[in-house]
Design a protein around this nucleic acid. Structure first.
Length: 448
RNA sequence: GCCCUGGUAGUAUAGUCCGGCCUAGUAUAGGCGGCUGUCGCCCGCCCGACCCGGGUUCAAAUCCCGGCCAGGGCGCCA
């Protein structure tokens, strides 16, 4: 962690009775002569000697503040000369129609308040002209998040979440929240983070899987958007230890039913991002496809054959390694499902097919080489579930409360989970998952 | 857990292979001064760095060893 040694000497002003009247983007030539108050952060200062231009940034955009040295009150001239990049300021003044100004209008200040000073020199250049590495950017995340790039990423993320909630709610799914502190570490699969829970050990939930399955008994269609924790030592651009999982579970449904939900959801998400984030996608230099539904369905067997044809050493029944997925992504650059996975590659709660138990009703939703979602028809017969648990080396006693749910009328059901960050990565073209999380957690990073 | 690469001013880089002309170059940021229409303004001056420890050598940013940190990949990952 680097710290700069600059000292803030600036005495700041009180907000007092000043309130914002306009955002930067509201300032236009039609407001010529109108008194306004704008608030935000100093993006850039261009001092030409006789005239000084201050670019003020707020959450909507930027507007130019112009201080002509001869015309203006000398107190304003002096005050504007004290400003630094990223100082938080408020400006009261008159809008002036001006063809030469960025939005055809600028503000000539009558008064300026410095509300919060910024230590100089800044640890990174938020205009991105002198780029900083991801590590430095994350160390000074509050500053970094002010950049156009970060603002664009988190706007897209917001629109994705909005689209997901809107779509699932409209389709009859009830939003639920399940515990993230859990008692048992025996669900199998990914490693869990142990925590001290008073005088006992507890764990951070790696998935809401078991809870959402139980909840279909009571609510039939549920979804949850919440954090999941995985204590894997993965060190790649697509792994973090704390991520947001979008989960659904639906009663009286099979894999095919929830695949339909997933592809329609993806269609809606892409459509909404395209509609509402054109500016942001331009900043990120990225294009989002309008996906064609239904998505391609490839069976696991087909995938293995395609990979073998590409000269990759892989045999039926083996998991698909990362480099093979990259090859697959090159063949299928957009969305596709991989279905009919071997049962032994899928978790215990994924239903083996009736006609051939070697093959499961589990699926993955891929976008190019990235796994976006994973799901399937669930086992809803308690005996089969017990058998699957034992086969995978798990202890039924540890699942006492989960198994109990199967005694009270468990309906056939299916569901999936989408990794929000991976989806946002693909929608924004961002190559490092940490960039699409405000304060990412990975194997090595626990701060800020 | 394994493998690869790297660590030079606030930031980003050149120099490292092949030790000495490095008193460490450049850009940007920052400070000071000049400039009345900038929009990556411009011009001048200034400030500021070889990750830490040990070794080799007449001489180490450069070579060797150890450590720490970072980036990436693999494996792992319901």
């Amino acid at each position: 962690m680097r710290l700069n040694s600059g000292v803030i000497k600036m005495k700041t002003d009180e907000l007092g009775d000043w309130r914002r009247t306009h955002y930067s983007t509201d300032i236009n030539p039609q407001l010529d002569g109108k008194q306004v108050v704008v608030m935000g952060w100093v993006r850039e200062i261009r001092d030409l000697g006789g005239i000084r231009f201050i670019i003020l940034q707020d959450r909507k955009g930027t507007v130019q503040i112009t201080v002509p040295q001869d015309a203006a009150d000398q107190k304003i001239v002096a005050k504007s000369g004290l400003l630094h990049r990223q100082d938080c300021i408020a400006v009261k003044g008159a809008v002036k129609k001006m063809d030469k100004a960025p939005r055809g209008a600028e503000i000539v200040p009558d008064n300026i308040k410095i509300l919060g000073a910024a230590k100089q020199p800044l640890p990174l250049d938020i205009t991105g002209r002198t780029p900083a590495e991801i590590d430095v950017r994350l160390d000074f995340r509050v500053l970094d998040l002010r950049s156009d790039r970060s603002q664009a990423i988190f706007k897209v993320r917001h629109v994705v979440l909005e689209a997901v909630r809107e779509f699932l709610s409209k389709n009859g799914f009830l939003e639920v929240n399940t515990p993230k502190i859990i008692a048992s570490a025996t669900e199998g699969g990914a490693a869990l983070f142990p925590i001290v829970y008073f005088e006992r050990e507890a764990f951070l939930a790696q998935s809401p899987q078991l809870y959402k399955e139980q909840l279909v008994i009571d609510f039939e269609k549920v979804y949850e958007i919440g954090p999941a924790y995985r204590a894997e030592k993965s060190h790649t651009r697509r792994h973090i230890t704390e991520f947001m999982s979008i989960d659904i579970e639906q009663a009286f449904a099979t894999a095919e039913d929830v695949m339909n939900v997933a592809e329609k959801l993806m269609y809606n998400v892409c459509k909404k991002v395209n509609e509402e984030c054109q500016e942001e996608l331009k900043i990120l230099k990225h294009k989002v496809p309008e996906p064609k539904v239904p998505f391609k369905r490839l069976t696991y067997t087909q995938v293995v054959e395609e990979l073998q044809a590409k000269g990759i050493e892989i045999h039926w029944g083996e998991d698909i390694p990362t480099p093979a997925f990259r090859t697959l992504g090159a063949i299928h650059p957009y969305f596709y499902f991989i279905t009919e996975w071997p049962s032994n590659l899928k978790p215990f709660y994924i239903k083996p097919r009736q006609d051939n138990p070697e093959i499961s009703e589990g699926f993955d939703l891929m976008w190019s080489w990235i796994e976006i979602a994973s799901g399937g028809t669930r086992v809803h017969d308690k005996e089969v579930l017990l058998k699957r648990l034992k086969e995978q080396g798990l202890h039924p006693e540890s699942f006492k409360y989960h198994l109990q749910a199967f005694d009270y009328g468990m309906p056939p059901h299916a569901g999936w989970a989408i990794g929000l960050e991976r989806l946002v990565m693909m929608l924004t073209g961002i190559k490092n998952i940490r960039e699409v999380v405000l304060y990412p957690r990975d194997r090595f990073r626990l701060t800020p």
